[in-house]
Amino acid sequence: MTPVTYTVLRGRIKKRRFDPAYFFYGDNQFLIDELVQTITSAIVTPEFVSFDRSILHGDEITAEGILNAVETPPMASAKRVVVLSGVHKLSEKMRGILLDYLERPAPTTLLIVTAPKVKTNKGFYRKLTLRTTPVRLSNLNERDAVVWIRERVSSLGWSIDSEGARMLYNSIGSDQSYLANEIDKLTICAGEKTKITAGDVAAVAGKSRANSIFDLTDAIGRLDCHQSIALVNNLLAWGQRPSHILALILRHLLILLSLKCLKKRNASQAEMCRRFNLMPYYLGGYLRQSAMFTETVLRKRIRLIQLTEARLKSSHSAKTFELESLIYEMCMEDMNQHDQG
């Protein structure tokens, strides 16, 4: 079965459309845990969680234990929820028992099995995806992250518009655990206010924004190689993947290049914001950076990023080293041009 996306699954949960069994896998443990909790809250009566929900672990469970859990009817809930985490740690015997059960799952049980990032195109995991609803969970893209931010803020009793949510994403990145922490800070600082604005985000996430991709490109433009590499390492420490950092730098440079073209034909700032889905809050900084570089320099940097992307796809390539080498090469290229000038 083709994996269901996070957004599609959330929509089904809201409509209370549940399948007999799910397979959550991927490197975003925060989303896996959140979805398990969301489904549990939607199905299990709160006062009977200790009776109608079972949490099992792949490296500890026995055949008797898993069969008792999935075949026991709920006491006072719509269904019994059984969570089997670490399915990748199951023995061959236990994998067979699980697959046999999934041929005819109990109608009174909803089973969720979880694993880290695994290959699902063959063997046990392929069979598992065919007998469950598979959901691959990695870091959300910007569009889905903005939706997630707004829903999480709403669940806490506040509201935030798309501009504020997008600003938070651009400030913090795609790691849900960091975003959740910042949302908690925002709700505390909001006090009696019920709506969180972009201004609130700018005030609370200001320190976080110092580590943003915008400041990284700004440091490169100042030929500050040391600061640029420090910012790259900060982004990596915050959970940003090297490929994601490269994609953000590339998008940023493409915007700078396009803004130079729009400036030549006297496009309005409103058109610039609309063209690139930019917030007015950020446009001034983009225009300032765009004026710092010639078209030739921007095109050369874009080419350097594309070459680095190709090297990162090699499993033999040291990701951090490639990023640091890219930053160094960009800075040295500008220094050489300044010297020649």
Rank of each mutant, 00 (worst) to 15 (best):
L283I: 06
K207D: 15
L307C: 12
S243C: 09
L235W: 03
E34M: 09
A190T: 05
F30P: 01
L231E: 01
Y178P: 06
R12A: 00
E333C: 07
R251M: 11
G58K: 00
R209D: 12
L9D: 00
E333G: 11
K300C: 09
G11V: 07
K313N: 12
I112S: 01
P242E: 04
R150K: 14
V44W: 02
R275H: 12
E192W: 08
A210H: 10
R209H: 13
L137G: 01
R16L: 03
V70R: 00
G341P: 08
A21S: 11
R311K: 13
T187L: 11
M292Y: 09
F214E: 07
A270V: 09
A202V: 10
N336W: 09
L236Y: 07
D52R: 07
D218K: 10
K264C: 08
Y169K: 03
A202D: 11
R16P: 02
F214K: 01
S228E: 05
K300W: 09
Q340E: 08
A205C: 11
R222D: 08
K117A: 14
Q29A: 15
T108Q: 06
Q269C: 13
E324I: 10
M167I: 07
I245A: 04
I220E: 02
C261T: 15
Y169I: 02
S91I: 05
L98G: 02
I66F: 01
H57C: 09
K263I: 15
A198I: 06
V82W: 00
P73Y: 05
T296S: 11
P105I: 00
N121D: 14
A267I: 09
E163T: 15
A318Q: 12
K15M: 07
V87P: 00
L254M: 13
D200R: 03
A210R: 13
V118N: 05
L253A: 04
F30R: 06
L259E: 03
S315M: 14
A190I: 06
L235Y: 03
V70T: 06
T187A: 10
L110E: 06
L99T: 02
G96I: 01
T62S: 08
S177K: 14
Q337P: 04
Y178R: 15
G199K: 12
I55K: 14
A202M: 13
F23K: 00
F276G: 04
R299Q: 15
S50E: 14
E295M: 10
G239M: 07
D200G: 04
F48P: 02
T38M: 10
L99H: 00
H226N: 12
L90C: 01
P134T: 02
A78V: 12
T133Q: 08
Y6W: 04
R275I: 15
R16T: 02
A21Q: 03
S174I: 06
R12P: 03
L67V: 05
V8A: 13
K89P: 04
A203H: 13
G284N: 04
E322P: 03
T45F: 09
W158L: 10
T40P: 04
I66A: 01
I220G: 01
K260D: 05
